[in-house]
Design a protein around this nucleic acid. Structure first.
Lengths: 299, 299
DNA sequence: TCCGGACATATCATAGTGATATGACTGCCC
DNA sequence: GGGCAGTCATATCACTATGATATGTCCGGA
């Protein structure tokens, strides 16, 4: 009934053709002889009943419809790559030593769950997790001192590869007694920038994201800088100043009513949580952990 | 460099073996001769370097490691099925008439975006969207009056197939002047059940979810029933009673500060948004829309 | 007009796949 | 304990699909 499955090698060829802008170029990219690539593409078009390429003696491009097919083919290939990563990690699990470094917010709230899942799937993998702020994580990965990092900074490192595995949002919170708790309307960015805040230390992903979001509004200096999320939480709960923290950190206190979240209008405080590694391909166990992380959260 | 791709037919065989609990049974299920299945499984094990099956003359089972591989193989196959669905819809787009029915919350906040994406990918598909409450959507799909439905009820229909494409959460909201807006702690379920609320009409997914979540706490009758989310919004904004609405509906007012969300402790108000269709396989265009919806949101 | 690039067609050797027959092992039932 | 049914493995063969090489066709630029 399920007619027959598409051939992943041909799907890879298709994406390569779309990227390189030519059938022959695409064929070379995937290590296929040009005539076979031509034949394979015809076969795929016949199988799908869709004209994928606009052929021309001076070079072929993917058609309008072909571009859509390429888009979905990429997802299949991504899934297949994740499959292969996990299988490879499974095969090498006895010798696998995975060194992970994560920035604080991620290390506290997301990585433990991912590691638990990884341990359930690949029990013999030996994993070590270190916690540092985002910029230090970059240094560790770049220096080869660990296999894989997780960071929340918007910045990219020039020599490292990354993949987004989850998303996060910064939220303004105040203690229940704070005047803002009774506000009738959302906070304007200018208002937030003009208020001394309790924030994380410079170099942390949370701080960098906040600074860059508020930069156009010329923010005043912070009321207090703390080196951990827990310290910021304690300060805001007890004190008179608002704080800006990840929604991951404040989920519990918010649920219990210990803190109040203040919506901010017209300011994008979402950020991407990325896996970072060195070299073209992460080691098998690292790739498996990335796959687990990506599967656990929305992309 | 990407060694070589796994064969999807063999991955399907593997999952079938895992489900049917036997190599021969699995082979039959995917229309493969038993000896070839045996050979293919050996080849896959060799390719991956992982022992997938525990073979026994009285029947084979997947190994511990095999179960993990099956899990990831399913994702590859799911992606491939989505790929095929989109390709099929693309091939049949000129003759495709897609009739969609969705319950109000989904139809207003999610389906339009999905349809826009579908129209971008498959421009010639003719789509019609009708809006009804969840129970009526079931009736339409079951009667064959539409090809595809989207509902938010926790209930399943006995003869219809479903797939979860997104998740949603119900939230308690009050006007900024309401006493609850200054609460220091989250709401207990008993407290919520004892309060007359502004709610949607019976039969709507929002109402069913709420009723079932509060059933153990013997809820008092509602303060007001309204037939649309907008009407509930208007009532809660102007009036003295709290309302329970989807986070999709209240995102805007919450952002503007027109409403305040009150956390509820110990009550699970999340619900799954499901695509529903009749028969084993949805029609191509419907399958494509399901794929688009699933890709747009976290699974 | 000629040449180079890009894709298509043709052809052939070979590896992989599907199909059938048969053998080995286990567990069950009488 | 012996036969029987079920399950998986091995052996074999025909055939298809795939990879490799040679060559043809079409377009654009010099």
């Amino acid at each position: 009934m399920t007619a027959r499955w598409p051939d992943l090698a041909v799907l890879e060829l298709l994406t390569a053709v779309s990227e390189r802008g030519g059938l022959g170029a695409g064929a070379r990219a995937v290590g296929m002889a040009q005539p076979n690539a031509s034949r394979a593409m015809r076969a795929l078009e016949k199988q799908l009943g869709v004209d994928l390429l606009v052929r021309h003696p001076s070079g072929s491009r993917v058609s309008e419809e072909g571009a859509v097919v390429v888009d979905w083919a990429r997802r299949v290939l991504d899934a297949a790559r994740e499959f292969s990563s996990v299988a490879e990690a499974l095969a090498a699990q006895h010798t696998a030593h995975l060194d992970v470094a994560a920035s604080m917010t991620v290390a506290e709230h997301l990585v433990p769950g991912w590691l638990a899942e990884l341990r359930r799937e690949i029990p013999d993998a030996e994993v070590r997790l270190r916690v540092h702020n985002s910029s230090h994580v970059f240094d560790l990965v770049a220096a080869g001192d660990c296999d894989l990092g997780f960071v929340e900074t918007p910045h990219l490192h020039p020599t490292l590869r990354t993949r987004t595995v989850a998303r996060d949002r910064l939220v303004v919170v105040v203690a229940p007694g704070h005047p803002w708790a009774a506000r009738r309307h959302g906070l304007a960015p200018e208002e937030l920038a003009a208020t001394p805040l309790v924030v994380r230390e410079p170099g942390s992903g949370t701080r960098v994201t906040l600074d860059e979001a508020l930069a156009p509004y010329r923010p005043v200096p912070p009321a207090l800088e703390s080196g951990s999320n827990a310290a910021v939480l304690a300060s805001v709960s007890a004190g008179a100043d608002p704080a800006v923290l990840s929604e991951l950190v404040i989920a519990g206190p918010l649920q219990r009513g210990d803190l109040i979240a203040i919506p901010v209008t017209g300011l994008d405080l979402t950020r991407e949580i990325r896996a970072v590694w060195r070299g073209p391909q992460p080691p098998p166990a690292a790739a498996a952990l990335i796959a687990v992380a990506a599967a656990a959260a929305p992309r």
